[in-house]
Write a protein that binds this DNA or RNA. Structure first.
Length: 416
DNA sequence: GCCGTTTTCGGCCCGACTGTTTTCAGTCG
């Protein structure tokens, strides 16, 4: 349902529809994706649908149409006019609805393949806003899109963040590098990597040296954009990295802004406006005289908005803004809440560390208990413990427990 | 098309970067 509503928003945009109506479809798509209400089951209950923020009378009707017919009339109408392959064009970088509409009306281009052909045939030259650079950008965009599309596992993004961070910190005048975006929010995947950088080298008007240094990072495949405050590039694995240089006075505002999520930020800025403020990546400022209210830390920005600061993991616009205003944020499970580990392999089979090392690491992590769960011998396991080695292993566990002052009160051996 | 702590009408988030349009439109995050 969310996808169909989002597609309808895209089609409306290509069609030149009202921007606010388009935004309503986007908002409804997000609402459909995030709600815990079973929309198919609730389709007959209009009042229930209307309780969902972003769903009004029209969207309730749309959801009901999707539940019964699998689509909605407006989407069908627009698809009949434009065809579904137009939607794929929007996925190319730099390609928005206005450009798609232009290509469609001026050159009858309705798909990525047709666009590639038109570029090869030189049919784009002479169209409005289609200079050499723009055409080359599209050509490159098609290449990139066909090669790599999608999101990256968080550990991939994390490793890239560490490597780039170490490189950046070597530049004189760069003092701090902080990953923002989905990496900071602890999502499982990241679409791109946002790195915020501050220090004397990031002072306004004096960023040129630092910008050049960023753009000289050895792992860069190609530079997407390079300005006064920002450098965007692709790494060899296709991951897009946005590096932003900020004065420390704005660091909190920028960190808040680039951590997102987008939905969280939109809600937060609406709240700011209602309170007579405007929130940007530079500061929370008064609407009337533009004077800064808060900017240096996230804490003071949230406080000025009448809210508690919240961990980045909560910022998905799923009720956390209201909860923070009521001072009723939930406590997140932290690493320190983990009491033990019930699945550990040692180097007796396919682990990498000894019993003693595992036990010491567990103590250091504050665990109350661990379970050593090495493999027994079976057909699939080449290095599993036979009965004799297993008994020796247990004896060694008892020995380590004794050496480390344990009472081995709960020690037992179960053959699995 | 949605929404409401002055409103059922009249609003709706904000700024950077790019390319090409001599003053700005389009895209992006």
């Amino acid at each position: 349902m969310a996808r169909l509503l989002a597609e309808t928003a895209d089609l409306l945009e290509i069609d030149g529809g009202d921007g606010f109506r388009i935004r309503s479809y986007r908002r409804a798509a997000e609402a459909a994706e995030q709600t815990t209400v079973d929309l198919t089951a609730a389709a007959g209950d209009t009042a229930r649908l209307l309780e969902i923020p972003g769903i009004g009378k029209g969207m309730a009707t749309n959801l009901q149409a999707i539940a019964t017919s699998g689509t909605l009339p407006l989407r069908e109408e627009l698809l009949a006019k434009y065809g579904s392959s137009l939607l794929e064009l929007l996925k190319l970088p730099g390609m928005g609805p206005k450009t798609v509409a232009l290509l469609w009306s001026a050159a009858q281009i309705a798909s990525i393949d047709e666009l590639a052909e038109a570029i090869e045939a030189g049919r784009l030259a002479g169209l409005p806003r289609m200079g050499d650079k723009q055409i080359e950008k599209l050509r490159k965009g098609i290449e990139d899109y066909r090669r790599s599309a999608g999101r990256y596992r968080i550990d991939v993004a994390e490793e890239a963040a560490q490597r780039i961070g170490a490189y950046l910190l070597a530049f004189p005048g760069i003092e701090k590098v902080t990953p923002a975006g989905s990496l900071r929010r602890g999502r499982e995947t990241a679409g791109d990597l946002d790195l915020l950088v501050t220090g004397p080298a990031c002072a306004p008007e004096h960023t040129a040296g630092a910008v050049d240094y960023v753009a000289a990072y050895p792992g860069i495949l190609n530079i997407i954009a390079k300005g006064e405050n920002k450098v965007s590039f692709h790494l060899a694995n296709g991951l897009q990295v946005d590096v932003r240089l900020l004065p420390s006075a704005s660091y909190g505002a920028a960190l808040q802004y680039f951590t997102g999520s987008k939905a969280h930020n939109v809600s937060l800025r609406q709240r700011a406006l209602k309170m007579g403020y405007t929130l940007s990546e530079w500061a929370l400022a008064r609407l009337d005289d533009n004077s800064t209210v808060a900017a240096a830390t996230e804490e003071e920005i949230y406080a000025a908005l009448g809210m508690d600061w919240m961990p980045a993991e909560l910022r998905e616009n799923l009720g956390e803004i209201e909860a923070a205003a009521r001072h009723a944020l939930p406590r997140l499970i932290e690493k320190s809440d983990i009491r033990g580990d019930l699945h550990m392999h040692t180097n007796a089979t396919d682990g990498h560390n000894t019993i003693r090392e595992m036990a010491e690491a567990a103590v250091a992590a504050g665990f109350g208990y661990i379970a050593i769960t090495d493999h027994s011998k079976n057909l699939a396991m080449t290095n599993g413990l036979d009965d004799k080695r297993a008994l020796e292993h247990v004896a060694r566990i008892k020995e380590v427990d004794r050496e480390m002052g344990g009472a081995h009160s709960g020690l037992r051996w179960d053959r699995g």
